[in-house]
Design a protein around this nucleic acid. Structure first.
Lengths: 112, 112
DNA sequence: CTTCATAGCTAGCGTTACTACATATAGGCA
DNA sequence: TGCCTATATGTAGTAACGCTAGCTATGAAG
C-alpha cells in the first residue's frame, strides 16, 4: 500500500513513531514498516520534508549526531508535539468513524 | 469536521451515497451530512468537480433532468463504479487498519 | 573498486479539496 | 414590485500534500 492518501494522517503517524523515544528519519521509515506489518513503506522524499514540516511547526526538535561515522538527525517530540499527537489520535478516531459511516450509510436501503 | 484530509476517500464516499440509487449533487451533500451525523458538510466547490472527475473516470454517468423548474444533473453508478466502490471499501478497511496500527504501534515500549 | 545499506537532502510534479465567486429558478414576505 | 432564502450547478484560482527522480556521502562487503 502506498501513502498517496495519507493526507494529514502522515503527521500523526510520524509523531506516534517518535513517541517511544527519539529517532532519526531513516529509522522512522523502518519503524513504520514494522508497526504496519510492511504495508506502509514510505519513500525518503516523503519522510524528510514531512519531518522538517513538523520541526518548523514546533512539534518536534531535531539535533545532529554522528553514529558509526554517519551523521544522523535525531528528532524528538516537544511538549506541543505530544499534545498534538493526542489531538491527532482523537481526530483519527473521529475521521475514521465518519468515513466508515459514510461508506456504510450509503446503501442501507433496508432498515429491516 | 472538514474534509481537508479526505484525499482519496471522498470518491469512495460519493460512490457509496449513489449506491442506494441515482442522486444529484446537492442531494449527495445532504445525504453525506445525514449519514455522518452532520459531521461532514461538503462545500459545493468540492462536490461538483469531484462528480465530474468520477464521471470522466467512467464510474458514474450523469443525465440532466428538470424537477420543479430547476435543472438537475442526476448521477448513477456504472458497473465499473460499482466494482470500484467494492474496491474502495476494501482499501478503506486496509488503510484504516494500517493507520490505527501505526498510531498504536508507535508507543508500545513495554511489551510486558 | 564496485556495489550495497545506511543516512540525508532538494526540485518539481500531479492530485486534491478548498475558497470565492457567478449563474439561475422557485417561493415566501413585505 | 423588490428582496431574500433555499435549491441547484458551475468555474477559476489557491494551498497543501505526498511522490518521483535525482543528488551527496560514509561504511562494509565482495
Amino acid at each position: 500500500m502506498r501513502a498517496e492518501e495519507l493526507k494529514g494522517h502522515l503527521d500523526a503517524m510520524l509523531l506516534a513513531s517518535l513517541e517511544g523515544g527519539p529517532q532519526h528519519g531513516y529509522a522512522v521509515i523502518e519503524a513504520l514498516r514494522q508497526s504496519t506489518g510492511g504495508r506502509l513503506d514510505l519513500p525518503t522524499g516523503t519522510i524528510y520534508p514531512a519531518l522538517r514540516r513538523l520541526e518548523q511547526a514546533g512539534l518536534i526538535t531535531g539535533s545532529w549526531s554522528v553514529v558509526g561515522g554517519r551523521r544522523r538527525r535525531e528528532y524528538r517530540l516537544t511538549p506541543a508535539g505530544d499534545r498534538a499527537l493526542s489531538g491527532r489520535r482523537a481526530d483519527w478516531l473521529d475521521f475514521s468513524a465518519m468515513v466508515t459511516a459514510a461508506l456504510e450509510g450509503g446503501p442501507c436501503p433496508n432498515p429491516a
